[in-house]
Simulated assay, not measured.
Amino acid sequence: MTISIDRHALPDGPDAETFAERAHQHLVKEIDRLEESADLIDSTFGTALLTLHARCVVDPRAAAIETWEATVNAMQVSEALFAVTGISEGTVECRIDHKLRTLPAVGPLSTADAGTWLTAFWLAVICRDQNRMTRLCEIPLERLRSPEGQYDAYVYHWVDVLQTYWLRRPGLVDKLITTIETSGPEVARVAPRDLLQGILYPPINLFYHFVRKDEGGFGPALAYALKLHKTYWTLDEDRQSNIRGSIALGPLAIACLAYDGAIPIDVESEYLPKHLLTRGWLGEFPT
């Protein structure tokens, strides 16, 4: 039986369409400027994510190619961020917005950290870009550490789990157990409890069911993750109107792994845009 999780109400209609188009136009201008200077590429990545969320507000099934383009652009900018911050001189070539671009080196940025890495990895998974997934997973974990203690320890264990899984390194089970043990609210102290329980932990739980090939447990865990996502984004009026709640990025990425692994996905929700989950646009244009 298919479980349906309704998305909470978000600002919709002509104003939402206009906002999404303006966000896209602004993003294109920012992307074009990257070839002159990539110093603000983290800001461009923020604009790319905003554009993706805005597109998913007006196109919750990702049935329009503009939504697929927004998803790919966000993925491309996210990987470019790590590419230009991984070197201090020279240039790197990155395909962004249908064009191969030569971007100047930036050197280390504090925003090229574990949290940004997780978002970049989710986007690469959703776009099924295995080459980008590999390049991201080859980034040393030490490079992703925030010197300000911005993240709980489990975040780095979680990144290590995903890199270990994708690169088929040994120790996956032990690393996953450590991640689960250190991500509990009684251990994790940096992230607010509602953020931890509603947004940050559910992908870890889903991944646990995925790697165990737990077909019977994956669907209920996915439904619960979406309910937690909805609860988090409806806690107050400011969150409810925030378009960042339009999709559940982490659960969507793990659901994509499960879908590609032939685990039945018996959950439907606008938090999981159908054509992103079922890779309906894959191969439409070079990524």
Score class of each variant (00 low, 15 high):
residue 149 G to V: 12
residue 237 E to Y: 08
residue 238 D to P: 00
residue 254 I to K: 02
residue 216 G to H: 08
residue 168 R to C: 11
residue 103 L to K: 00
residue 95 R to I: 01
residue 160 D to E: 15
residue 236 D to N: 15
residue 46 G to W: 03
residue 172 L to N: 11
residue 42 D to K: 04
residue 44 T to A: 08
residue 252 L to T: 03
residue 213 K to Q: 12
residue 144 L to M: 02
residue 261 G to A: 11
residue 177 I to W: 10
residue 173 V to A: 09
residue 37 S to V: 04
residue 63 A to F: 04
residue 280 G to M: 08
residue 269 S to A: 10
residue 127 C to T: 09
residue 60 P to F: 09
residue 173 V to W: 05
residue 54 A to F: 03
residue 82 F to P: 10
residue 7 R to S: 04
residue 135 R to Y: 01
residue 280 G to Y: 13
residue 287 T to E: 15
residue 211 V to I: 15
residue 147 P to R: 13
residue 268 E to T: 06
residue 234 T to W: 05
residue 220 P to D: 10
residue 160 D to K: 11
residue 4 S to D: 07
residue 16 A to M: 06
residue 46 G to S: 15
residue 34 L to H: 09
residue 122 W to I: 00
residue 186 E to Q: 13
residue 178 T to D: 15
residue 78 S to I: 04
residue 146 S to E: 09
residue 223 A to H: 09
residue 159 V to H: 02
residue 207 F to T: 03
residue 16 A to P: 05
residue 240 Q to R: 11
residue 146 S to G: 13
residue 243 I to Q: 12
residue 179 T to P: 06
residue 157 H to A: 13
residue 118 L to R: 10
residue 8 H to W: 05
residue 17 E to K: 10
residue 147 P to D: 12
residue 184 G to R: 15
residue 149 G to I: 13
residue 166 W to K: 07
residue 258 A to S: 11
residue 239 R to D: 07
residue 261 G to F: 04
residue 220 P to E: 08
residue 226 L to T: 01
residue 86 G to K: 13
residue 35 E to W: 03
residue 238 D to H: 13
residue 215 E to A: 14
residue 115 G to H: 09
residue 46 G to R: 13
residue 119 T to V: 07
